[in-house]
């Protein structure tokens, strides 16, 4: 057992490539979270209505995103749209699929948060002569912020981990870059340990940063 010699020098040479991948991972995570948040805000408002096409559209989006594997959603965008003649690069496909997934989960988070804010807040704002859009952006959403902050950060962490699925459709984010780098030497374990450490560090930095900025924002 363990007649295995670790061979690290070959891994160190490839670390710049892995860091390049980590950059792509961060980029995917952040952009897909921004798009996802904007769509989720809209979906959560639509979902609150009692009937209508908008509500049904939002409900189907949320349930589809939450009840099918993220990898399935990626396949659907990458291969499914490809079958319709719409050939996307793996980066764009990944971005769309991740945004779709984030929007579904975030909409549920926002909906739960909106339920904790009394309806009278919105009604009072409207009766003061504030338009519907402004009533949301200036009165409801700022209150929502505190309630959904930590679930939101949790979803950000999921988005980071989910972006690793890009490897399967040939994207060179951190996991994909690691896969490519190890394929020359087959030092799989060494390479993926480094990738794991980088993911761990990114995840921890996000969580620590989130806690710090919440403390700063709430204190003020």
């Amino acid at each position: 057992m363990f007649g295995y010699t670790f061979y690290w020098s070959i891994v160190w040479e490839k670390v710049p490539e892995l860091l390049q991948g980590a950059k792509a991972t961060l980029e995917l995570t952040v952009i897909s979270m921004i798009i996802g948040t904007l769509i989720a805000l809209l979906l959560s408002l639509l979902r609150r209505q009692s009937s209508g096409i908008g509500m049904r559209f939002a409900a189907s989006w949320i349930e589809l995103a939450r009840n099918t594997p993220a990898l399935f959603q990626i396949y659907m965008i990458y291969f499914g749209l490809g079958a319709l003649g719409l050939h996307l690069s793996s980066y764009v496909a990944m971005l769309i699929a991740l945004s779709f997934n984030n929007a579904g989960f975030l909409a549920e988070i926002f909906r739960g948060g909106l339920q904790t804010i009394p309806k009278q807040q919105y009604i009072a704002a409207r009766s003061l002569g504030i338009g519907s859009f402004k009533a949301y952006t200036h009165v409801v959403f700022p209150q929502l912020f505190r309630v959904v902050y930590f679930p939101y950060i949790n979803q950000l962490n999921w988005a980071l981990l989910n972006s690793s699925l890009g490897m399967i459709i040939g994207l060179r984010e951190l996991t994909g870059a690691t896969q490519a780098a190890q394929s020359e030497s087959f030092r799989t374990f060494e390479f993926f340990i480094i990738a794991a450490v980088i993911y761990y560090a990114m995840s921890k930095i996000i969580q620590a940063g989130a806690r710090f900025s919440f403390w700063r924002l709430v204190r003020e």
Binding site: L165, M167, I168, T188, F189, F192, A195
Partner: peptide, 14 residues
């Protein structure tokens, strides 16, 4: 804090 895919690959090669 580590993607499941990487956990699978690591345990597999371990």
């Amino acid at each position: 804090s580590i993607p499941l895919i990487i956990q699978f690959i690591l345990v597999n090669s371990f």
